[in-house]
Nucleic acid binder design. Sequence first.
DNA 1: CTTGGTGCAAATCGTTTGCACCGTC
DNA 2: GACGGTGCAAACGATTTGCACCAAG
Lengths: 153, 153
Amino acid sequence: MSEHQTEQDGARTQLTEYLARNGMKQTRQREAILESFLGVSGHITSENLYEYVRAQYPDIGAATVYRALKLFCDAGLAHALHFQDGVTLYEHEGHHHDHLICVGCGEIVEFECDDIEDFQLRIARDHGYRLTKHRHHLYGYCAKCQSSGTDRK
Amino acid sequence: MSEHQTEQDGARTQLTEYLARNGMKQTRQREAILESFLGVSGHITSENLYEYVRAQYPDIGAATVYRALKLFCDAGLAHALHFQDGVTLYEHEGHHHDHLICVGCGEIVEFECDDIEDFQLRIARDHGYRLTKHRHHLYGYCAKCQSSGTDRK
DNA sequence: CTTGGTGCAAATCGTTTGCACCGTC
DNA sequence: GACGGTGCAAACGATTTGCACCAAG
């Protein structure tokens, strides 16, 4: 688990440095929450992460998980995504890509497209904007849902 | 003929038909809320629409506005957009375009780009998806915020 | 006169905050 | 020891729901 190991360690040091740089403290809880967060492969809600954390560390409260997740975003370790139905999911930072979401079964496929990125920059420039980030979500029915008729509507 | 007039009437009949088709009733409130909604040019939150409606029809309750807005989405008259910070805005349907958002002052510029739309279709097809909609948001600093230094961060 | 709609207030949901105590630095 | 972090429970803001009454069909 070379790469994975590297990501874990990199994130850990990144957090440590961020905390030190801001006069904040490294705690058991923050390490545990980061570990759980990194253990998740794709996307997760604050709530689910809380459940997930609690399974292993029953003494960690919800407030701490919410606070930590916000901290991770500030530290550049996580990114918050707000989806169509109002749900907020968090994903690892650096893991940048866009999303193709099945409205039938909820599957999320990630994609990258450099051509689109280029057009985005051009559009921003045309309007005098300096881009900092973007969010690109495509919604539709995946192959399975199309054949199973879930796409009726 | 003002297209606006056409849009208003079109929306009104569309709602009437939707209600009839689903055995639902056409009420004063629904008409009033639709009118207020159509009177808004860009984007609006449920809450703001409630205030806006209440200014003209003080006897209409919040629940009714929320219920109506959801109804409009089902009827294909409105679309809900979930933004980065968790805020939900509604916009008129058919008014399709994507968004360039200033994270400094909150300005929202709308844009369209056929090339990007083409790439989206290609990506979806490559993954076996049948697209139904998409949401494409670009975040950055507008020219004003860049020169006023609001983009410091 | 039947059935869906409305207003109100209470309930709910996810998230945040105040506070007394605890652990890091 | 000082000061930030934590857990808990209470507070919160936006949205939803239960219910008795109202009105469109």
